[in-house]
């Protein structure tokens, strides 16, 4: 139940700007001004550390310790970025991360929406049992399972492969409940109609359910992608080959290998932040709320 109500909010929240315009809570002028001040402080705290990273990445390591610190590096030094790409498999790490996060996201959206459809709309023996089991397992912390997971993956001969990174995250049941909550919102008559029209369950899933829950899936997908992009402990354990590693672990390796090369580390973090930010900005635009109004009476 946990996931459901909230994800409902989440989908609607994706349409936040429009939603606000519609519900239009009345606000006084001082309240609005105060809000802007608060948000300005919040944005500053969120962004200033990044400026620091930008500044550091453009300095030679020797000039880092100048005091007081210069915010604007002069001259601008590109050596950190050159070293990043020349001396480290940084491009590979980026590709690995995007591939793994993309694969996990695609598979999870597929599997979770299928399972969510079964749980939301089908009557079958053992349904309550399955739902309860999945719900309980939401509360199992993954980092408590790293030891047995390590041995399972080793037993399967998958250590140090992409599979080791892609398969275990598929066991997280949270997405099923989110998908289920989106699908519960589809009027029953819609699938009933498709069923009478001759559609198989799989066709209903593919032609009716999937298109209708797309806005929700975008949110769930972004969430999954982000979780995967930032995951650290499991890739650290499951993959030892530097060429197969993901960004988060690779970057943390930059520090230990080249003790405190702040310029290089900053350059690495900056470049690593680019792909996920681009993905987020792209998806942000796609957060459009599709409504089911045509299917209903009003």
């Amino acid at each position: 139940m946990t996931a459901m109500s909230t994800t409902e909010h989440k989908t609607r929240g994706a349409d936040a700007s429009k939603g606000r315009a519609r519900s239009g809570l009345p606000r006084s002028r001082p309240a609005i001004s105060l809000s802007y001040v608060i948000l300005f402080i919040g944005v500053a705290i969120a962004l200033v550390p990044f400026l620091y990273v930008v500044s550091t990445s453009l300095k030679e390591s020797t000039s880092l310790f100048s005091y007081p610190p210069d915010w604007i590096p002069s001259p601008i030094f590109w050596g950190n970025f050159e070293s990043l790409f020349a001396d480290h498999p940084f491009v590979l790490w980026t590709i690995n991360t995007l591939f793994v996060a993309g694969a996990v996201t695609a598979l999870k959206l597929w599997f979770d929406s299928m399972a969510g459809y079964a749980l939301a709309k089908m009557e079958f023996a053992g349904r309550r049992g399955v739902a309860l089991l999945l719900l309980l397992s939401v509360a199992i912390p993954i980092s408590a399972l790293i030891i047995p997971m390590f041995f399972v993956v080793r037993y399967l001969g998958l250590l140090n492969t992409y599979w080791a990174l892609i398969l275990p995250p598929l066991a997280n049941p949270l997405g099923i409940f989110m998908a289920r909550s989106f699908i519960v919102g589809i009027p029953d008559d819609l699938e009933a109609s498709a069923r009478l029209d001759g559609a198989s369950e799989f066709t209903i899933y593919r032609k009716i359910v999937l298109p209708l829950i797309r806005p929700g899936l975008v949110v769930l997908g972004m969430f999954t992608f982000m979780l995967q992009y930032t995951s650290f402990i499991w890739p650290l354990i499951a993959v030892s080959d530097s060429d197969r590693q993901v960004l988060a672990v690779g970057i943390s390796g930059l520090q230990s290998a080249f003790l405190q090369d702040w310029g290089l580390l900053s350059a690495g973090m900056l470049v690593a932040a680019v792909p996920i930010t681009v993905v987020f900005l792209l998806v942000q635009k796609a957060f459009v709320f599709n409504d089911l109004s045509g299917a209903l009476k009003e």
């Binding site: 089908m122 997971m149 398969l167 369950e201 899933y205």
Partner: peptide, 17 residues
């Protein structure tokens, strides 16, 4: 049919959880 839809998840669930 329902278990076919739940299948991929249940397998992942069993093996990795």
């Amino acid at each position: 049919t329902a278990y076919a839809f739940l299948g991929p998840n249940l397998v992942a669930f069993a093996v990795f959880l």
